[in-house]
Design a protein around this nucleic acid. Structure first.
Lengths: 337, 337
DNA sequence: AATAAATGCTAAATCGAGTTATTTCTGGTA
DNA sequence: TACCAGAAATAACTCGATTTAGCATTTATT
């Protein structure tokens, strides 16, 4: 096992001080008036022996890690995985690495993860925040650490964030169903108070009440286990045979819903029409394909990482936080009349 | 911004030496004959002020980081995302964190990532290896670093790895099609020499030639861009109208294939039967659902992380590497007669 | 010629831990 | 009283970098 070279080894080999080596490698040669000749000699030698500074030591000294912490709800969910992927690419291109983890929307787990990230001197945070995490986020911000939220935001906390116009999206989708003549439109969503879900619910409510129809809302708890998710949905649909259209709150609910409808042998769109929040390969390929509210995944990822990189580069902590609200796209397919 | 406490602060507050604090916190109190009374006093104070050792400094000194490097081909692919998720869970439960990245199956990118992981003193590696990475992996192993590969292995390199029985899986699936009476069975795969793809191809070939049928193989290049993937497949199918069944080499090819077949208005299974390697929500939900060769995702993730944790815990570097070969499950659905 | 300024480089401190070698104290024994 | 063993704790070094403050030497200025 070849021992790794340190900056001292380099300095000794060249009979100069490690200070000089450090200055040269950090591009401060000119500023420190180190001769061209020596700079070249050092750079050449460093390249020759393939010396790479130990980044742990560097981080310890500088307090910077060139690492971005990414906390999504669930990396195995297509929506988050795709965004994570794009953030990762951009981060690498800008010299940052990613440490990621899934929060499961679990407050305590998220708190622990944030603590771990801090401990590792992560330079910036990208977080899909669960409920009850306000204080921890505020504390990060108070300490001057760049934080960008996405998918949802925390009403009490002033941060940069990137979300979509959830309320208008479901309002619009619901209107679409109403205009098609559906009368008993259900909304199936998760049982939580996060902004994205609350807004989606409100968009639906607004459209329904505006048209003097009756809302019909089913909120289910989130479980990893599929059975625990499909059962309450199935029970709900059995109980409400009058439903002629369903709006699902996200892709996970949508796929569960599709399975339930298949179990119940419901024809789409004859028996029941469908629209789902979030687009997903499944909705494109299933038969009939499902109309979906597509979030602009590329744009979300792009905005998130751009915001964060800006914060990281402008060491100035200008207090103005940016809120980005992107629009969605109703991709009409054959799951409605 | 509250300054973070260091071990020196703790020591000063208690009027003792930081050495003592360090010994106590690292469970070496008894060994170092430190009085019960002092141990308790220190632990109590540490808990009280919430002191956490700086893990960068710790890593620098000890050379251990408690981080596992995870390199998958593409984190946005469901197969890898799901496995990554489970590995992540197990790792956290055992006190390890994950740094992950997607390799894109790009050798150079992977080399850079491995270099970065090394640089960060990652304790162990889980890698889905691209072609041409043999030397880098060997070098890790030579230096005593635990490495576990999965999904495929590197024939020239002796490592721990976890794969499935690809050859038997496609052999079996192809036989299934043959037994159903299909005569012109095509195999659509990626154009690369990796073991998993080679074995899948060989399983198909073996079954076909055993039955005196003709092989019909299309190998396409991998592209992120969907058009570039579907076009050659579409051209191939147009050219070979005689094909009555298709075996896809993985889930990505399978979904591309489904899109092509939809474009071409082919009825499944009347015009053409399908089996796809890898199961995926899409195949379960599309209509008709697609028969798939399901990899045992849970078992793969479990074996991978178990192997690695074992290596990490038994500091003994016993030379015997473990090869785990798991079996797949043919999930028959209605995409064949 | 004496002094000031610019040039080129470096010794030593520092980040926050872990670890080695050593010191101090206590009590018992010769 | 002198000496020693073990108990209890610590000073000082180390990991590998960055950074501060400063030392020679050369060149320019008066």
């Amino acid at each position: 096992m070849k021992k790794k070279l340190s900056i001292v080894d380099i300095a000794n080999s060249l009979n100069i001080s490690k200070t000089t080596v450090s200055f040269i490698l950090n591009g401060r040669a000119r500023e420190k008036r180190i001769s061209e000749e020596l700079v070249e000699r050092v750079l050449k030698y460093v390249k020759e022996v393939g010396y790479k500074p130990n980044s742990l030591a560097k981080s310890l000294r500088t307090g910077k890690s060139n690492i971005i912490g990414l906390l999504v709800q669930d990396i195995s969910n297509n929506f988050f995985a795709t965004i994570a992927r794009q953030i990762e690419d951009r981060a690498y291109k800008n010299g940052y690495k990613i440490i990621y983890s899934s929060t499961d929307n679990d407050t305590q787990k998220t708190q622990e993860l944030i603590a771990m990230f801090r401990d590792r001197h992560v330079d910036g945070y990208i977080i899909v925040p669960p409920e009850g995490i306000e204080e921890d986020i505020s504390s990060l911000i108070k300490d001057g650490l760049p934080v960008v939220l996405f998918d949802r935001y925390l009403p009490g906390v002033e941060t940069d964030y990137v979300v979509v116009d959830n309320l208008f999206s479901t309002y619009n989708a619901t209107r679409y169903l109403i205009d098609k003549g559906y009368k008993n439109i259900a909304f199936i969503s998760f049982n939580n108070q996060q902004t994205q879900m609350a807004d989606r619910l409100n968009g639906y409510k607004k459209a329904i009440t505006q048209s003097n129809l009756k809302t019909n809302i089913k909120e289910v708890d989130f479980y990893q286990d599929e059975k625990l998710m499909t059962e309450p949905i199935q029970a709900f649909l059995n109980e409400h045979q009058e439903i002629d259209a369903i709006l699902f709150g996200n892709n996970h609910l949508g796929t569960c819903g599709l399975k339930v409808l298949r179990n119940l042998d419901k024809k789409i769109p004859e028996d029941v029409a469908l629209i789902c929040f979030d687009d997903y390969e499944v909705f494109e390929l299933c038969n009939p394909p499902v109309t979906a509210i597509a979030q602009p995944i590329d744009a979300i990822a792009d905005k998130v990482i751009t915001l964060l990189l800006n914060r990281l580069n402008t060491s100035v902590e200008n207090g103005v936080k940016q809120q980005v609200i992107l629009t969605t796209d109703l991709r009409v397919r054959k799951s409605t009349k």
